[in-house]
Amino acid sequence: MAVAVKPQTIEISADPMVPVPYRVLRVRRETPDTFTLELEALTSAFGHPSPVQTGEGSGVRAFAPGQFNMLYLFGVGEVPISISGDPAQPEVLVHTVRAVGAVTRAICALKRDEIVGVRGPFGSAWPVAEAVGNDIVIVAGGVGLAPLRPAIYHLLNHRHEYGRVALLYGARTPKDMLYKRELSEWRGRFDIQVEVTVDAARPDEWRGNVGVVTTLISRANFDPFHTTALVCGPEVMMRFTILELQKRELRDDQIYISMERNMKCAIGFCGHCQYGPNFVCKDGPVFRFDKVRELFGKREI
């Protein structure tokens, strides 16, 4: 039996469906179809006198690694895109977008000074606080590196709080890799193990590993009893990655994954992102694996 709840009384002005305009500062081409946009809140947005403050309703909002925004392109539509910038610098909003549909193609075609609408940030975050003191193994596939990058920034900004850190990244070809310059910078550090692999390559274009990302897991240095794994990529990649992590004796509650589903609202109203009892927009996108294990193996949930 449904029990009546008293509808909460709040100011109607805080409409979570209304985007805030942001200006494009810079667009960088990562791969032939993937672009990174840097955005800045418009000072004139809604006549807010000073958007440079964090909090609801202001232009700049603090975000946690793993969260996403809804990006709106005037008259074209809106899509959920994870935030890929440094959480310590929320004044510049960074999104890496792959052109796969009408809206993302239009977003990737944006030029400096053009305007994009932003709603967010939404969703759950990578457990960077809970993982303090642990070894961290990050496994990313394809554009799955984008939602993980804020976590990597956080780990490197707070490097002394963590044990060993391993970043394992797989892409289809060297051309499909995101953040190549940063990856090589990170490789040059002594305090993070970076292993990158591609499905196939010519020797003249690639000096790194060839093979699927799951083959890197046996090479990562971590203590299985004190490790947190952060995994992001297509579901099939995450499935096989989890199998390998389990072989290295990680428990399911040490593994975190980031899920992707269709979203129209990002606030739990549109119903599109349901994943069993979860709304990926608010209960996810980051889930501790043991919480979704029963669903993860089932088809078409």
């Binding site: 797989g170 699927v212 990649m237």
Partner: peptide, 11 residues
């Protein structure tokens, strides 16, 4: 795994 292009290269 590489046969099924697990990084979602298709689009």
């Amino acid at each position: 795994l590489r046969l099924i292009d697990i990084y979602g290269g298709r689009s």
